[in-house]
Design a protein around this nucleic acid. Structure first.
Lengths: 117, 117
DNA sequence: AGCATTATTGAATGATTGCTCAACTAATAC
DNA sequence: GTATTAGTTGAGCAATCATTCAATAATGCT
């Protein structure tokens, strides 16, 4: 997991490297950011997110819509929940999921935009 | 890779499922979208992209900045190149990389936004 | 030509990940 | 209580992926 810097070459433009280095965030921030985008990096999960953009849905409905098992869907929803991308409410035995906030749609839209250029 | 629909439950709200299904894109589009976001889903690659947001850089400089081998950086740049997220120009032996367009920064920014809420 | 420097590539490997399966919890109905 | 339905969870496995290593291009210099 933790890997120490191993570089096999010398710097060529040290002024540029130094000035860029000043603008960079902490490494942990990039890892967090990557963890967020990783959730958008799976076909099943983006389908779930795009579906929830249309309407709140329960686990069974999502499973039927995507042709997956409840288990598979639930596993993915848990990951999305832990990253605050979706929220849920329980009604009797049924758990309804929906998007947590507008960022999800905005990120998906930016992605679609890039594909359609 | 290709998996056929296997669902272990019945639909609960068929009207919702049907209306959402109409709004959904082709499955391949979601896989493409996921492939795009997958590239943002690695700490090293988001560091590279954020660095290139500050300045055009050559492979060696990126390697020094991030403490990686040229090879590791080059492999990641290739992936980013294939997805049109970065472009490059050659000058003598040196290859300079830069962001392909503004979408990259916009997507990164949306991600940062979500983390800081 | 030969050599140095910058970068790319392919194979191999260890780590991560998505799904399945089985067991389990939560809520309702009888 | 038992049964049923909806959902969650953990282990296990196959597939994917990021890095390393070694070999190879590509350019410039003498």
């Amino acid at each position: 997991m933790e890997k120490q810097p191993v570089c096999d070459c010398d710097v060529i433009h040290s002024e540029i490297v130094n000035s860029v280095r000043e603008q960079m965030c902490e490494k942990d921030e990039y890892i967090e950011l990557a963890s967020l985008f990783k959730l958008f990096g799976d076909g099943t999960r983006v389908q779930i997110l795009h579906a929830l953009e249309q309407s709140e849905m329960c686990v069974c409905d999502i499973a039927v819509l995507l042709g997956l098992t409840k288990s598979a869907v639930s596993h993915q929803l848990k990951a999305l929940r832990l990253a605050n991308l979706v929220k849920f409410r329980r009604e009797a035995q049924t758990v309804y999921y929906s998007l947590a906030d507008s960022h999800v749609k905005e990120i998906l839209d930016k992605g679609f935009e890039h594909l359609r250029e």
